[in-house]
């Protein structure tokens, strides 16, 4: 959601990382980032191997064990470590499977919005003039709506569901990439190396993609990380409002929405899916901070 504020900082950055080892050196100096990385890898592992890791199927209903509390509370059992939900499904398993959805959402949204945003931004920043004005007006229009509201209405238009939620979130995320790319391209374009290759006869596409783009990557990577976590949050919010993934999909936001009626009686159905969202988003944001430290020379401290 709060992606914009980073633009100002990252605008001036943009020197490419000088080698993987240097990157890792700076990245690993940020302890939080390393922790984030490991947590993220752990979640990723869970997501990929969900069928092996999860103790139960996420959809099998055990009608004898409705709303069973987690193991550490009276009445809980090791069979269902985090308890069961209203139709007797194992919450831990649903959360593990849910990781698949959240990571998938993040990945798709980031890919969609980065690819489209970068392309449009490149065009706008490279050609300027009327094309630029037109594109930026459209971006202004999109940004004139609160992102979540726009996504909500978009999903309502397209029909509630995971795929449509992803499309909607990509669309509202994309202007940030357009603006970022455009700004970076405009800075780079006047630099000597670009002018040089232009003089040397490089074509437009070559200039755009091979000369300029790689030099704008650093802020984009940082922004993409942030967009990844924002996408997970937005998708969960849409799910929570009933417009995202539809039950019985074990998407975390949807689980929360379903659990909401049990807020008084079964705290665990409400608490754990939310905690899963928080931990995942936190891990990614920690990584994002580390990436920024490592990629943004201005903040590099020696």
């Amino acid at each position: 959601m709060s992606i914009v504020q980073n633009t100002a900082e990252t605008k001036t950055g943009g020197t490419p990382p000088s080698g993987l080892s240097e990157f890792w050196y700076y990245f690993s100096r940020n302890k939080g980032a390393v922790i984030g990385l490991f947590v993220f890898l752990f979640i990723l592992f869970m997501a990929i191997f969900a069928p092996l890791v999860a103790p139960h199927s996420p959809s099998i209903q055990n009608r004898d064990l409705l709303l069973m509390p987690p193991v550490f509370q009276q009445g809980g059992s090791w069979g269902h470590i985090l308890g069961t939900d209203a139709v007797g499904r194992d919450i831990l398993s649903r959360i593990i499977y849910g990781a698949r959805f959240s990571l998938f959402i993040g990945l798709v949204v980031v890919t969609l919005s980065v690819v489209s945003g970068v392309l449009i931004g490149l065009v706008a920043g490279y050609f300027r003039g009327k094309v630029d004005t037109f594109i930026m007006r459209i971006m202004d229009i999109i940004l004139a709506f609160p992102s979540l509201l726009l996504a909500l209405v978009l999903v309502a238009v397209l029909g509630p569901g995971l795929v449509n939620a992803m499309i909607a979130i990509s669309l509202v995320n994309q202007p940030h990439f357009v603006r970022l790319t455009r700004a970076a391209v405009m800075t780079e374009k006047s630099k000597d190396y670009v002018v040089g290759s232009k003089v040397a006869g490089a074509g437009t596409l070559r200039l755009m993609f091979l000369t300029i783009l790689p030099n704008c990557l650093a802020p984009l990577i940082v922004q993409a990380t942030l967009a990844f976590s924002a996408a997970i949050l937005d998708a969960a919010a849409l799910g929570f409002l009933g417009m995202g993934a539809q039950p019985p999909t074990p998407e975390w936001g949807t689980m929360l929405a379903e659990a909401r009626e049990f807020i008084q009686r079964a705290w665990w159905v409400v608490t754990f899916p939310g905690l899963a969202i928080l931990i995942t988003v936190l891990a990614i944001n920690l990584m994002g901070d580390g990436l920024r430290d490592a990629l943004d020379p201005k903040l590099k401290r020696s």
């Binding site: 929570f240 929360l256 608490t271 928080l278 936190l282 990614i284």
Partner: peptide
Amino acid sequence: MGVALIGYSMPIFWWGLLLIIFFSG
């Protein structure tokens, strides 16, 4: 900064529910 990052990563709809459970309930 740790707390700030947690706040920044917070799914606020869940946060609201937790606060209601704890402070109001």
